[in-house]
């Protein structure tokens, strides 16, 4: 039974077979449960506290009408947005890290978050726009950055080193441009823009996260089911993957597009929340202890991280709510330093 000691296999008499890693499924399931449990806790907390059983009852449609209003109209959309943003960032981060073969290669390092931010700042500063301009700016900015990076890196260069370097350069340029746009803004707009740049879940409703949920529902299966195995082959280098019959350029283009879209829609919903895309795949892979992109566990881990960060953000300073991006930024920054110090010996960073 070589090669299958860590795998579960289901075979049908018709010659069909499915292979899966039980440990990865357990990790993914565990993270999902944790995310949902934290979500319930989060829904139950606030100025009008509710016990977790009450929350669950209300969510199932059997709660008191007053509870129902608070839960379904105010708090559930926020938690739902958090879950979706976390999952999208985790998935996008896992794809990027796998494609560039570096644990730091997440969309916030490679210019895509900055691109989304540029779009939003342009929307806020130049058009003085509201919610729709912000969301559209985020998606448009992210996508344009994706096209730019792909064009500069070149069709054959969209991997590893070249993609990283181009991404870093574009990120630096866009950071400068964002700073400039910020100086052009009125101070009230600037404050709003900085809040958005940090990443916040305040007052999010289904209208904010709707597009993201659609994107997740469409792109998630595409990535997980159809590209997952090819992505695993790509980790061995282009030549090896090519030798195994992976149409590398097509697969990579699909994956890049999906990751950029996921990151951009997540940014549209909650702003460029820092470091979830970086740390979720890393934490997930530490738990699954298997090589490979670990896409599903990373997505679930991202959701759990995001909800946990929002919980901390609301509770850390009583009477003072922080934007969720501050929490992920601080935690992620610490994690990054730890990663830099410990992982450098292996030469992977």
């Amino acid at each position: 039974m070589t090669g299958s000691s860590r795998y579960g296999v289901i075979r049908t008499p018709g010659g069909l077979s499915l292979r899966f890693r039980p440990r990865a499924l357990v990790v993914a399931g565990g993270c999902l449960l944790l995310a949902l449990a934290l979500g319930v806790l989060l829904i139950g907390s606030g100025d009008f506290p509710m016990s977790p059983p009450d929350v669950v009852r209300t969510l199932l449609g059997n709660g008191a009408p007053a509870d129902s209003l608070i839960v379904n109209q105010i708090r559930l959309p926020r938690v739902g947005t958090a879950l979706a943003v976390g999952a999208a960032l985790g998935l996008a981060g896992a794809i990027f890290q796998s494609l560039v073969r570096n644990p730091l290669g997440s969309p916030d390092m490679l210019g895509f978050s900055q691109g989304a931010a540029t779009g939003v700042l342009a929307g806020i500063v130049l058009a003085g726009g509201g919610g729709l301009a912000v969301a559209g700016g985020a998606v448009g900015g992210g996508l344009l950055t994706g096209v730019l990076v792909y064009a500069v890196a070149g069709r054959h260069g969209a991997h590893g080193q070249r993609l990283i370097l181009v991404g870093v350069g574009v990120a630096a340029i866009l950071t400068g441009v964002n700073g400039y746009l910020l100086t052009r803004a009125k101070i009230t707009d600037a404050a709003r823009a900085v809040l958005w740049l940090t990443g916040s879940l305040d007052g999010r409703d289904w209208g904010d996260s709707g597009p993201l949920l659609v994107a997740l529902a469409v792109l998630g299966p595409v990535v997980l089911v159809f590209c997952g195995r090819a992505l695993r082959m790509l980790e061995m280098g282009d030549d090896a993957a090519h030798g195994l019959g992976v149409p590398i350029e097509r697969v990579r283009l699909i994956l890049l597009a999906a990751a950029v879209l996921l990151a951009s829609f997540a940014a549209a919903a909650a702003g460029p929340v820092a470091f979830v895309a970086l740390s979720a795949p890393q934490l997930a892979r530490r738990l699954t202890r298997t090589a490979g992109p670990n896409l599903l566990p990373a997505a679930c881990m991202g959701a759990a991280l995001m909800v946990a960060a929002d919980w901390v953000a609301q509770r850390a300073f009583p009477g003072h709510q922080l934007p969720v991006g501050v929490v992920t930024g601080l935690l992620g920054g610490g994690y990054l330093v730890w990663l830099l110090v410990t992982e450098r010996r292996t030469g992977r960073i």
Binding site: G3, R6, E235, G237, D239, G243, T290, A291, G292, T346
Partner: peptide, 17 residues
Amino acid sequence: GLLPQSSIAPEGITVAD
């Protein structure tokens, strides 16, 4: 089949995998 000059063993992967 091809054995390229530079292939990358994904980190932590086992021989069987």
